[in-house]
Structure formats: C-alpha cells, structure tokens
Design a binder for these strands. Structure first.
Length: 805
RNA sequence: GCCCGAGUGGCGGAACGGUAGACGCGGUGGCCUCAAAAGCCACUGCCCUCCGGGGCGUGUGGGUUCGAUUCCCACCUCGGGCACCA
C-alpha cells in the first residue's frame, strides 16, 4: 500500500523545488515564442483572501499551460504598496507606514507562495521602492515638460475644522466631515492634473481592437462619453456685444428653444443679472455652493428650487426671438460651455424645469401617433422650424442646422467629451512625492533627474490631523531652487496611487534598467500583455489610466512607439460574495484561505475555484462551500490512488481507455482556450470515474496527470515524478489524435414531432438514408405513428432523426 | 432614468438551434468494518403508472422553426455600472 496523499508535504516539496530551480524565471533573450501573463498586482493588505486565490489560480493556470505549450512565459508579480490604509494604520500605531507595509507584503507573498502560484520573483516591483519612485518621478517631469501635466484650480471638499482637503469618501451623506463634524464645502484649490483628455479620441477608437469583455469596453465608452453637436452664440437682448456660448447635441431643435440656462458658476452671471434679480441670484448661488455633491447631482427634490431667473433675455439666432435666461443647478460648469439652450419638448430635464417655471414648450420633432410621453427624444419629421420644416429625420436636420450656423458665422461643429483630466494630487504622505519645487523667482521647477528620487523623510510624525506630515516637515519642505539656487519650497502633495499602477507592466519587462523607466528593447519584446487578469472593479479607472500612460509614454519616446495598447486580452473574474455582499476585509466577512491550505491543501482549494462555476461569474461563499471543497479534495485523493496503482486494475479494453484519453485531451484543451475551467475539471472527474469503472492504461493515467498539471500543479508533479521521473511541467501539452478521439458509437435520438421517442446506438459515420430507415423501423416510433404516414423526416445523422406527422 | 449582465432540480452549475439537468454538493440504499472514519457500488427534476410507459418541466406571455435553455419581441424579478454630460 502506497502512502496516503499528504498535500502539505507534497506542496512544500514542490514549491521549494520551483523556487530553487528558478523554473518559472524567464530571461529576455529566451528563444521560445513569448507570452506575457499578468495578474493585477495587489495592494498588500495582509495574507491573501479568496479573491486573490481566485485571481492567481487563473493566472497560474495560464502560466503553466502556456509553458507546457512551448512558450517563454513572462509571469511577474509585485505590490501596489502605496496607499491610505497603511497611512491610517501608521497613525493609529504611531509608527511609520513602511514597516507596516513591508510586513503586509511578506504576509501576502507568503500566501502566494503557499498557493503554488509561480512568478519570476527576480522582477518583483514595489511601488514604494525608491527605485520605482524615481522612475515614476522621471515620467512626471517628462509629462510636465510636454504639457501632459499641469496645475489648475479644481473644486475640492474642504473641511474648515481640519484645515484640509477630504476625499469624497470622507464626507458624510449629510455633508459634514466624518472626523470633525464641520460642514464641508467646495473650494477651489491648485491641483496637479494629467491631460488624459488629449487622448480621448484614441482611447475611444482603440477599444475596438481590444479582445476585452464587451461590458468593460462599454463602461469605458460611456466614461469617455463622446458626443457630437454644435457650439454657437446667443447674443444678450439689447447688448449685442455680450454673447452666451452654448453647446448642444441637438442643433436641429433650436427653433424649440424657449429659454436658456447658465451654470451658477458661469463667469457671465454677474454681468447679465439685472438689479431687480441680484438678490435672488446671489441667494441661489450661495445655496448651490453649499449643496453637497450628492444633493446637487440628485434628481430628487422639488424642481421649483432648482433655478432662478436672471432678469435678462438672449436672442435665439435661428428665429431672432428673445428668450429668458435662468440659472439652474442641473447645468454644470465643467461640461460643454457651462450654458445651454433649453428645448423642453425634446429634453426631459428642460421639460421638467419648464413645467416648474411655467415656460412655454414648442415641439420641433413630430412624435409618433399616440405619443403620451413628455419630452420626445426619438426620430421624426421636423415641425415648427421655419426653413428646417419638411426634413423627415433628425440626422439630416442636425447636419442642416450646423451647416447654417457655420455659413452664418454664428457657431460650428463641436465634439465634447465627458472624460475629464485626471486629478493626480493627493494631500497624503504615503505616496510618490510630486517632484516639483516652487521658486519665487523661477516659479514651478521640475526636480532634475540627478536629484531624483525625491523621497519622503523617515523622521515624520504621523498625526491624526488629516494633514500630510510632509507639510509640517521643515527639512523636506524647504529646499533650494534647482535653477537659481535660491530658497524654494517643495511640493508636499503626493501622486494618486493609480499613477503607480499605470505603467508597472512596462517596468516588468526589464526592472533592472538603471538608465530609463522602461527598457524599450525589452518592452518591444514582451508588450503588449497577452493576458491580463483582474477584478471587474478596475474596469474604468485603472484600465483607462494604464491605456493613457502607454500612449503617452510611446509619444514621449519613453516606451516603444508601436505599442499603443497595454493589454491585448483582458479577463475580468467575478467577485466572491458572502451573504449578498462582496467579501472584503472592510466588511469583515473574510474566509481566510490559510485554513484550507492547512487542511485540504492548495491544489484542492485551487480546484474548487476552477470548478465552482464560470470564472467570470460571481461566486457565493455559502454553508455548502466547505463541502464542495471537501469534494475537490476527495477527487484528488481518487486520482492519487489511481495513479499509484491502488484503484482499479488494468482495462479490459485498453484501446477504449486510450481513445477516451484522447477525447479528454481535446475537451480540456478546448475548454482552456474558452475559459471554461469548470467544465474542464468536470471532464477530468468524469474520466476518472470511467477509469474506476473500466480499468486503466498507463497512457490514460499519464494523460490525466498531464492535463491536471496547470490546475493542480503539486499533485501532478508528485505523481508524474513517482511514475515517470522528471517534471510534468516540462512535458509538452498533449495533442489529441483526431482519429483516436472519435467516438466508436453515438446515440441516435429519434423524435416524433420533436419529442424523444427512442435512442439507438449507431456508427458515427451513418448516412441520412440509413439513419432514417433505422428510425422508421423503431417499434416505439411505429407505436407513436399509429399507422399514420410521416409528412416529413428531418435527419441529422448521426445524432438525430425527427419524424413529423 | 439610462446602459450592461443574469433568471435551469434541494444547492453550485452543464448543454455548436438537436437526448435539458454533464460534473459536483446534499440525500437515499447497499457493500466493506466489531463499530466508526475513509473507501467502493447503485439510485436521486416533478407528477401519474396496470412498471410497458405516459404527462409536465429552463422567470412570464407571444413569435420564428420539423425542433428553442439557446434566436426575435414585450414584460417581471434580481445583480452590476453610470447617474442632471445638454
């Protein structure tokens, strides 16, 4: 009797061997065809949780599968180690975020190793490493030099009590500060931005060429929010020198404009407000500025309170008629021109406002017969529009209206984006410092390369004031100007941590490069990432920023010019849920993987994650989960006994077992390609059941072990070594022989009027005539025909015959 | 409100337009054992049955088709994303 399967012993042995042998280290000059697999590098929050396990199980499967297929697989890993949790923990413990972060990384890395996920750890990147900070900062200065980084005023949440900026998450729903309880208000502050909008068109257009989940592409398209329309001027009535510029996507409806609206923050507001309305307008502006973001953006609430009349009129250039100008909170300064022409008949927001303020409504598109709705935004013939009347569709009318505006010199075609520039300033300590100094003489000066990295000092006091200790650190703050040598002040803001993750995949190609952030030759070789794997929660921000960085770095000659997109294929795995909500540390409902690593082992836990359902779907962690994991462990023990000769004896029909093995190869290979791991596991279980029933052959068992290698790598390695010697992971991925993989007989299903009435075993090569004859000869079929003549017989040999009466 | 995605046994889930429920969990029965654990074998959608079989079944209602879980239309429920973007 061979010894029982001891997962902990087997797993420790092979993990040590893979590390010692550097099995999954890959050099940049490796001659094999390249393949770059990347799981999103994690924020180190402590030991791995089930979401990590799921992510790295899929990633590791691909690494091992592609390696067996003969590729040089680049599989790097690192840690997104800057961020607020470490800063808060440090404040709480009155320590520094670094030791805290390093400890969390050690824990997470430890559980990744125990999972048996293999990486080229020589390439490890940590965002808080001074070397990575340096290159992050070099890139920032290049962005600055090329107009991709700039400083501008931006509204922020300001807490007067804490004297600091708050993140949206730190503002309570009632608009007060979560720490001090003071009323938070919006205030303009100088902040750093990256000009991602320069790439808006390319970010949108290149989505088409990506092999990404459709829903992620849709989310990105919506986020970019490209809309085509026109911009034109509305002269103020009686003051033709003052004009209000508006943006509209529906210039065809211009004859239906019955009023105009400015955003409350619009610069022309004070100029055009009449004396009689001054008090009301001031009152309204004051109220809007105090409204929290949430209130302002809510569609709830009485429409009557949402606007105010300025007392002024503007002239509709289309028909020369004056219309009143209002301020309304539903018009935003940040989009378009911050002013609109309002056409209540064809815009629901305008309709609601018009109703509340008793403004006229004029339809310019004929709604379909029986239309009972309010604003009509669909297609239809133009009405009430003078020279636009008679046009029967919106698209033509739009084009005609824009042409007219351009001919008259009143306005022009215009494309607007919802996408805003990326605000990267964070008033935080535990992040990459922005490498800039402010000099009274030279203004904003980038820190020169030879003085990088700018690293935050260690002798800081982490205080619960909400302020970055960098601000209070005189030694850091006061410096000299790199240009004039005079006294200057350092920027104390740090960069958004999304900056760190926007190019790490490029650095992985050659993390040893001491000259440049990205080694272009190495990046040329490995990029783009062939398979990127991560959570759907990064569908917009991280993936958008990384796409932006890749394009910008290419244009600045900091990355290969030909690589415009970082991630060729993207797979987004489902979330782990428990009791209806996402399993997470903050919700306190984590089920630690360690407990399963200690009991059933890593392979069984990996198998569970592969088997439980389609990888893209969410997983519910329930009372039953424990039993399913136990079931996976049971299967592995079954394989163990089978492989070591303790299960069934040799097959009476060895050729039949071998043919089944070839079918298994075909099935698992196909399932791997289409991310159907749950059915691949099911096929292996089914095959194992078959061997238990009909007996084994060496080829059948070896095949099973080889196919399991990417899924349960330790067990497969151990069994292969005991049976054959050497490493299963060095074996080539098996090829199915199509001849042998053919089934020796198939079930012909015979239906009468679409209902199954008989099943007959037939030769797979059976032809239509023979199948029909066989079906009609069936006693059961005859019984159901009851003497009637078939009207029609549909034969789809060898699987089906349908007799229609 | 708009945009996605999903509704299949007691449960997780299978199913190029062609046998609905693979595989697993749970359950039932049997074998092994002094007993238990482990293991092995069989059965397991619902209803009816004269045990031959028959009927009903993939959220609801229609449609296309010889045939629909699959394609089309409408609706319901749940989950997610964006939320006044002119």
């Amino acid at each position: 009797m061979a010894e029982a399967y001891d997962p902990q012993a087997v797993e420790a042995k092979w993990q040590a061997r893979w590390a010692e042998d550097g099995t999954y280290e890959v050099d940049n000059d490796d001659p094999r065809p390249r393949w770059y697999v990347l799981s999103m590098y994690p924020y180190p929050s402590g030991p791995a949780h089930q979401g990590h396990v799921r992510n790295y199980t899929f990633g590791d499967l691909i690494v091992r599968h592609r390696t067996m297929q003969g590729h040089a697989v680049l599989s790097p890993m690192g840690f997104d180690s800057f961020g607020l949790p470490a800063e808060n923990a440090a404040i709480k413990a009155n320590s520094h975020p670094r030791p805290f972060t390093d400890a969390r990384i050690a824990e997470l890395k430890g559980s990744m190793l125990r999972l048996g996920a293999v990486y080229d750890w020589r390439r490890e990147i940590r965002s808080h490493d001074p070397e990575y900070i340096r290159w992050n900062q070099v890139i920032f200065t290049r962005f600055l030099a090329n107009g991709l980084a700039y400083r501008a005023n931006a509204p922020v949440n300001w807490c007067p009590g804490c004297n600091t900026v708050l993140a949206n998450e730190q503002v309570l729903p009632d608009g007060t500060c979560e720490r001090s309880g003071d009323v938070v208000y919006r205030r303009d502050l100088e902040q750093w931005f990256f000009r991602i909008t320069r790439y808006a068109d390319e970010l949108l257009d290149r989505l088409d060429e990506l092999d990404w989940p459709e829903r992620v592409k849709i989310m990105q398209r919506n986020w970019i929010g490209r809309s085509e329309g026109a911009e034109f001027d509305l002269p103020v009535d009686g003051r033709p020198d003052v004009k209000v510029r508006v943006f509209t996507t529906r210039p065809d409806t211009s004859f239906g404009m019955t009023y105009a609206v400015l955003a409350p923050e619009h610069p022309l507001v004070d100029e055009i407000t009449t004396d009689a309305q001054k008090a009301a307008v001031a009152d309204f502006k004051e109220r809007v500025s105090r409204e929290s973001e949430i209130d302002r953006l809510s569609t709830e609430g009485p429409a009557e309170k949402r606007g105010v009349f300025t007392g002024t009129h503007v002239v509709n250039p289309f028909n020369g008629k004056p219309v009143p100008v209002y301020l309304a909170d539903y018009v935003l300064m940040g989009y378009g021109t911050g002013a609109i022409m309002a056409v209540p008949a064809e815009d629901q927001r305008d309709w609601d406002f018009a109703k509340a303020y008793d403004l006229p409504i004029v339809r310019t598109v004929q709604p379909p017969d029986g239309w009972e709705g309010e604003a009509y935004t669909g297609d239809g013939p133009v009405i009430n529009s003078e020279w636009l009347n008679g046009i029967t569709d919106v698209a033509t009318a739009k084009a005609r209206a824009i042409d007219w505006l351009e001919e008259q010199g009143l306005g022009e075609r215009k494309v607007n984006f919802r996408l805003r520039d990326w605000l990267v300033s964070r008033q935080r300590f535990w992040g990459c410092p922005i490498p800039v100094v402010y000099c009274p003489t030279d203004g904003i000066v980038a820190v020169p390369d030879d003085q990088l990295p700018v690293v935050a000092p260690d002798d800081v006091e982490m205080l619960p004031t909400g302020e970055s200790p960098l601000k209070a650190h005189e030694g850091f703050r006061h410096t000299t100007c790199p240009t004039c040598g005079g006294p200057a002040e350092r920027e104390t803001d740090t960069m958004d941590t999304f900056v760190d993750s926007s190019w790490y995949f490029l650095r992985f190609c050659d993390p040893w490069d001491r000259e440049e952030p990205v080694d272009k030759e190495a990046a040329e070789r490995w990029m783009p990432v062939d398979q990127y794997i991560g959570g759907i929660e990064h569908a917009i921000l991280h993936l958008m920023y990384a796409r932006f960085y890749t394009k910008a770095l290419a244009d600045l000659d900091l990355a290969p010019a030909g690589v415009r997109e970082p991630f060729k294929r993207l797979f987004t795995q489902g979330m782990i849920r428990m009791g209806g909500t996402k399993m997470s540390k903050s919700k306190g409902n984590l089920v630690a993987p360690a407990k399963y690593l200690d009991s059933v082992g890593a392979d069984a836990l990996r198998l569970y994650h592969l088997f439980v359902g389609p990888p893209a779907d969410d997983v519910d962690w329930t009372e039953q989960t424990e039993e399913v994991i136990e079931g996976c462990s049971r299967f592995l023990r079954r394989v163990w006994r089978l492989a070591l000769g303790e299960g069934p004896g040799p097959a009476a029909d060895p050729a039949g077992a071998d043919r089944a093995a070839h079918r298994l190869i075909a099935k698992v290979s196909e399932d791997f390609e289409r991310w159907s791991y749950n059915t691949a596991v099911a096929a292996c279980m089914e095959f194992t059941n078959l061997l238990y029933k009909d007996g084994t052959t060496d080829f059948a068992v070896d095949t099973l072990i080889t196919l399991l290698a990417p899924m349960t790598p330790h067990l497969a390695a151990e069994l292969w070594e005991r049976r054959r010697g050497g490493s299963v992971h060095a074996q080539p991925w098996p090829e199915a022989d199509p001849e042998l993989a053919k089934a020796d007989s198939v079930t012909l299903v015979v239906q009468v009027n679409g209902k199954v009435r008989d099943k007959i075993d037939v030769d797979p090569a059976i032809d239509e005539a023979a199948a029909t004859a066989l079906a009609l000869a069936s006693e059961r079929v005859q019984a159901h025909l009851a003497g009637a003549e078939p009207k029609k017989v549909i034969a789809r040999p060898p699987r089906l015959v349908n007799v229609v009466v």
